[in-house]
Write a protein that binds this DNA or RNA. Structure first.
Lengths: 218, 218
DNA sequence: CGTTATCTTGACCGTCGTCAAACAGGGTGG
DNA sequence: CCACCCTGTTTGACGACGGTCAAGATAACG
């Protein structure tokens, strides 16, 4: 297990790679992405500190998507074979891997719904809610808001919109008093209303405790 | 392990359930779905014979989506605890579960791209291609075409379109000589062209052998 | 202090949604 | 065997959400 510091924009995995390591995000943010034949990009999920980046590559031979750093980050590499052997020797670790992978799949299902069946306003509100809850669960966000580690263009690629429209929606959410923001810092003015417009329920995140996000109490 | 025969439309799992069984689809077709707060439905994946339906429910406590039968089907139930114990005792089974779950996640990623970044024509062509390849890999589709086990309305919910638009696109694909169809039977007239308009590559299915679908040779 | 990435705004346009009606097909029962 | 219905498919007219293009404003950064 080896630690590496990498700059924003570095690739951790590229689509088509035959990877040798399983990579854990110790600090910083990353995102998974695919690019279509016509050149448009889709962001598939955002990795936050503590996430395992590629269990995929531990058991599948060729990577079906790329992972790129959103910010400067430190990652831990674990040799593929070592982890494979570990899973066979310690079944409890295998169960942990299954657990983590299933949650990732659940989040992907919610993303399909998000880009497929919600309008632009709900979509953006939804990713903001998801971020907030996931970050809070790891103790990385305060109750009031958080620093969004992505540009509006990246937010557009995560929500299947255009940067222009993302900008319009963000301004509208602000104008309606749901959030406030200066540059990338998002503050939740009305968390309840934001959840409502987002059609957000934290169930799909499968976090321990079914209670509402603490922010709701404010 | 118990076999059950169920009618089309039966629910195997409902969102919010606390399931007791892990279910395998022996014969027939099913689909995963979620419904938004405004009532629109998104189909998340289609299960074909041989698919494990809910590894989710084996390790996560509450179901985040529903699974409903597309056709009459027979399913095999395995008690949740039995399978959990089996994974701990036979790590190789755990690895198989991980493998299957990772492939499912890969397909979900492709679906995010499909509904997010492709136009209606490519989207529909893409699900047709995916079906064909997955069915063929299990020996369930001939080289010429297959019986699509879903209505145009369900196809619309799978592609995040409206039934009306699905109909228009299908007719257009037919008019352009890519497919032919009578009722739900789809025949591939020009498989290569269909793949091209679909922006389809089978890599994300992680099937053994990187060679093209046999249909391509015809 | 210039250079570049990012954000912001406006005018216009197109893909796809909406609404509504007509048209199969395929069971069912009289 | 035929009327009947119900689900699914087909078609058209119209509208809207979000895309496109282009320009200007505002940071970040060397």
């Amino acid at each position: 297990m080896r630690l590496r510091r990498l700059d924003a924009g570095s690739y951790i995995v590229r689509e088509g790679d035959v990877p040798k390591n399983c990579c854990i995000l110790v600090e910083g943010f990353a995102y998974r992405q695919k690019v279509t034949g016509t050149g448009s990009r889709q962001i598939l999920s955002v990795c936050i500190p503590g996430d395992a980046i590629d269990f995929q590559n531990m058991f599948l031979d060729i990577s079906d998507h790329s992972v790129q750093l959103l910010t400067r980050a430190t990652v831990a590499d674990i040799p593929r074979e070592a982890l494979q052997a570990l899973v066979l020797k310690q079944p409890a670790i295998g169960v942990a891997v299954i657990h983590s992978t299933l949650i990732e799949a659940s989040i992907l299902r919610e993303w399909v719904v998000n880009v497929g069946r919600r309008d632009a306003r709900s979509r953006i509100a939804h990713v903001l809610c998801e971020f907030a809850v996931r970050l809070e669960a790891r103790g990385l966000a305060s109750k009031e808001g958080f620093e969004l580690p992505m540009t509006q263009e990246q937010l557009a690629d995560a929500t299947s919109l255009t940067p222009v429209h993302v900008n319009r929606v963000l301004k509208s959410l602000q104008a309606d008093g749901l959030i406030s923001r200066q540059r990338r810092n998002i503050q939740f003015i009305d968390w309840r209303a934001l959840q409502d417009t987002a059609d957000f329920s934290r169930r799909y995140l499968h976090l321990p405790g079914e209670d509402e996000l603490a922010v709701a109490a404010t």
